[in-house]
């Protein structure tokens, strides 16, 4: 069984891993020259299905709850299981109650518990919600780590793949190109983020700051880096971040901890999330073509489950006869 995967984002790489683990011959082609820069590269890397359930429908929780295990299994050492802390300024305490009513899998904590969890936030918030079962990873390290592992497993990669490149023959083709797939029912939701560097604050886990207009999260990464994200704009343009978005994101980071005001702004990033109208992902099959898309803001959270579904579909239909049958259905 030979499978050709289009796209080296989180959907393509997780599918490659599922297939290669089962012994399929996998080639990944990617039109970019490297992994860096795609939508997955700009992700927060939060594996937070209980928090996400606040604004997402149930499949995000049911498909995402095993994601941390999948990543830990695929890339030992990458997953940090310190949970998620959700805070709100005293003035917006009602937002915390609302969040709590919509989510599950958390316990309310007081100022003392907040200080114990995140000493640098001591005295800043009176109440929070602690989602102990959640996790996070560094998406860039995870993408590069997965690619390296896949190469060792015998998966071939071709970057800079264009229309002039030589075609590959395969039993199955998988389209994992996200917004570039240009499906008519797919829309882009622009997300903008910042990376700050400061040694004056340290956080053990992603912290979400609730605000009626601009909810943000701050995800700690190694090297005193913090990813601050992310805007949600109904737009498929990938152009540079706007001044307004920088101001709003910085404002929110500053509200979380004033020391972020002195941080270095080392990077801004823009990604376009692929989403269907219900903001839920799909695995779709047409003959010997399959596509995974619509991961929206849940790439690292939902890609494992979608990859498993797609891989089952692919490996469950190995004979040519069945493929022909599917194609004519």
């Amino acid at each position: 069984m030979k499978v050709l995967i289009h796209g080296a984002g989180v959907a393509g790489l997780t599918l490659a891993h599922e297939l290669a683990t089962c012994g399929a011959g996998v080639t990944v082609i990617e039109k970019r020259r490297q992994i860096a820069g795609n939508a997955s590269w700009q992700a927060g890397g939060m594996l937070a299905p209980w928090c996400e359930r606040e604004s997402a429908e149930d499949p995000v929780l049911s498909l995402g709850r095993d994601a941390a295990d999948w990543w830990e299994n695929a890339l030992p050492g990458h997953v940090i299981r310190n949970g998620t802390l959700v805070v709100a300024p005293a003035r917006d305490a009602a937002e915390l109650d609302r969040f709590g009513r919509r989510a599950s899998g958390f316990r309310p904590v007081d100022a003392e518990a907040i200080a114990a969890l995140e000493p640098d936030l001591e005295g800043r918030f009176g109440r929070a919600l602690f989602f102990a079962g959640e996790a996070h990873l560094d998406p860039r390290k995870a993408l590069l780590g997965l690619q390296e592992k896949l190469v060792q497993m015998g998966v071939r990669f071709e970057f800079g793949y264009g229309t002039a490149s030589k075609p590959y023959m395969a039993d199955f083709e998988a389209d994992c190109t996200g917004i570039a797939a240009a499906q008519p029912t797919l829309r882009g939701v622009r997300g903008e983020m910042l990376i700050l560097r400061t040694s004056e604050v340290s956080l053990a886990r992603p912290v979400r700051l609730l605000h009626p207009r601009i909810p943000v999260y701050v995800v700690p990464r190694s090297g005193n880096l913090f990813m601050v994200g992310a805007t949600m704009i109904e737009c498929d343009a990938a152009g540079p971040i706007t001044a307004r978005s920088v101001m709003e994101l910085l404002n929110a980071a500053y509200a979380l901890h004033p020391a972020f005001g002195e941080a270095e702004l080392v990077e801004t990033g823009v990604g376009v999330r692929p989403a269907f109208a219900d903001n839920l992902p799909r695995v779709e099959r047409d003959g010997n073509k399959i596509r995974i898309n619509g991961l929206y803001r849940h790439g690292f959270l939902l890609a494992p489950a979608m990859a498993r579904q797609a891989s089952d579909m692919i490996l469950g239909h190995e004979t040519k006869k069945e493929l022909v049958h599917e194609a004519h259905r």
Partner: peptide, 16 residues
């Protein structure tokens, strides 16, 4: 400002 800035004027969202 929010729904259609840049790009294809909100694309899918606007069609919906």
């Amino acid at each position: 400002r929010r729904e259609t800035s840049g790009g294809k004027a909100g694309g899918q969202f606007w069609s919906l």
